[in-house]
Amino acid sequence: MTKTQPSDEREFAEEQSSLFKITLGPLAWALHFVASYAAAAVWCAKGPGGSILPLRLGIGAMTAVALGLILWVGWRAWQQWDFTDDWDYEHARARGEDRHEFLGHAAFLLAIVSFVGTCYTALPALYIGTCR
């Protein structure tokens, strides 16, 4: 049983990185969101009070990291989508290439949504200067 490759394992080996890419964009959004929320909650409850500038700068830094990650994922997904190769955006055929490019396309679109979502999350830190 050691040398054989059941279908699931073979497919996962083939598409592991694309499954990873699909979730990584939204996951970056989610982690950034939770980290921003937790940082604000802890800072406002346990922090020194007064200016929240360090909190805002921290959220800014986290945003830069998250956006960087999402851009990287988006770029890799764009490459996987390989749109300019055949201008296909339907991926409706029953073959490995379509499945592969479909997963790339979906990951690319999710990266865009995650990018916008992360920018939105960062906006309050840009404008709001106090906990209250």
């Binding site: 699909i22 939204p26 996951l27 959004w29 989610a30 969101f33 921003s36 929320y37 604000a40 909650a41 406002c44 929240i52 909190l55 979906a106 679109l109 999710l110 949504v113 995650s114 979502g117 999350t121 906006l123 309050p124 830190a125 404008y127 709001i128 106090t130 906990c131 209250r132």
Partner: peptide, 29 residues
């Protein structure tokens, strides 16, 4: 998939009047 993820970042908008820090409200808004 996107809605599935983002929908988990909305819960505090039911709690806007509970006196959470405004910056926290901002994230959920």
């Amino acid at each position: 998939v996107g809605t599935g993820f983002l929908s988990f970042g909305l819960w505090v908008h039911h709690m806007f009047t509970t006196g959470l820090p405004t910056i926290s409200l901002g994230f959920f808004s």
